[in-house]
């Protein structure tokens, strides 16, 4: 009865596209990780764990790229959540008027192409002529006018800062929606009981906002581990290898024709994200089930 009303073939186009362009490449990619597949030769030979041994060998740089990816992910999670939460609180409690205007402007960077944002910041962060250093020199902070994207010690932090600038609005919007679901009476009751602003934040806002903060965190984890555009267009992994991350290395392996090695790196990322994805889905679905129950 319901099979004729809700026919399975409605699902087929979506499933077919998904399997052909998503699943088959990922699964067969794991198989090709154990080969010497490259653009130089038509022959593909089984080489066992050789690619993985190379990736995890301390004498190669791959562990650094993985480490850089984790540093990028960790720092952007903390910065985006802290600033995003600050702005969400500001728009939720601090200001009463023009909230929507502020929201539209603060969210603006999130919809710009990452590539374009990176190009603009290459100019802003230029050590000699960039806007940032010009402003710093103008107000007398010459010591802070650093070589943002050129100095290997701070290049990663600069990339993180630009990415944070771009991502804050997205995080703020989600947290703001979370804040708006907290009933006002809770705060009024707490105020009558003499709770100050900090304890109201600590004991009402933070616990009730936890689900939204969790969602924001997993979104940032998924984004951070896969990050490509912003690094590629800002520094392309440089100076040296200071900002090289997993996805930029994958593109370099692709350009150099090292397909076997590159697909091994890809497969490692796949396994990491498969595990992360499992938790994400549980989280998203738990929220949804709770909503259905209530």
């Amino acid at each position: 009865m319901s099979s004729s009303r809700y026919p399975v073939y409605f699902v087929l186009p979506a499933i077919a596209l998904y399997i052909i362009f998503f699943i088959i490449p990922s699964i067969s990619g794991i198989a090709y990780s154990f080969t010497d597949w490259s653009s130089y030769s038509d022959e593909i030979n089984y080489v066992g764990w050789q690619n993985f041994q190379k990736i995890f060998s301390p004498s190669e740089r791959y562990l650094t790229y993985i480490w850089n990816t984790l540093v990028f992910t960790g720092l952007t999670i903390v910065l985006k959540t802290v600033f995003g939460l600050g702005l969400a609180l500001l728009l939720n409690e601090g200001v009463r008027r023009f909230v929507n205007l502020y929201r539209v402007l603060i969210y603006l960077p999130a919809i710009l192409p990452t590539l374009v944002v990176a190009l603009i910041f290459r100019s802003i962060l230029n050590p000699a002529t960039g806007l940032l250093n010009n402003v710093l020199r103008f107000v007398g902070l010459d010591a802070l006018a650093l070589r943002w994207l050129v100095d290997p010690h701070i290049a990663m932090l600069s990339v993180v800062a630009v990415d944070t600038w771009k991502g804050i609005g997205y995080i703020m919007v989600i947290l703001l929606a979370g804040l708006q679901t907290i009933p006002r009476d809770y705060y009024e009751a707490a105020q009558i009981d003499g709770a100050n602003a900090w304890s109201r934040f600590r004991y009402i806002t933070l616990p009730l906002l936890m689900p939204a903060i969790m969602v924001v965190t997993v979104l940032n984890v998924l984004y951070g581990l896969r990050v490509f555009d912003i690094v590629y267009a800002l520094t392309n992994g440089g100076p040296g290898y200071a900002t090289e991350v997993i996805s930029t290395e994958i593109f370099k392996a692709f350009s150099k024709g090292q397909y076997g090695l590159g697909t091994a790196v890809s497969s490692i990322l796949f396994v990491i994200l498969l595990v992360a994805g499992y938790f994400v889905i549980r989280l998203l679905e738990r929220d949804r089930n709770k909503e259905e129950a209530s």
Binding site: Y18, F22, I24, P25, S26, S28, G29, Y32, W37, L222, L225, R226, S247, I250, F251, F254, Y259, G262, T263, S266, S267, L269, F270, L273, L274, A276, G277, V280, I281
Partner: peptide
């Protein structure tokens, strides 16, 4: 698929 990366090689 929301979480998974793409394998560009295969």
């Amino acid at each position: 698929g929301i979480a998974l990366p793409i394998n560009f090689f295969t």
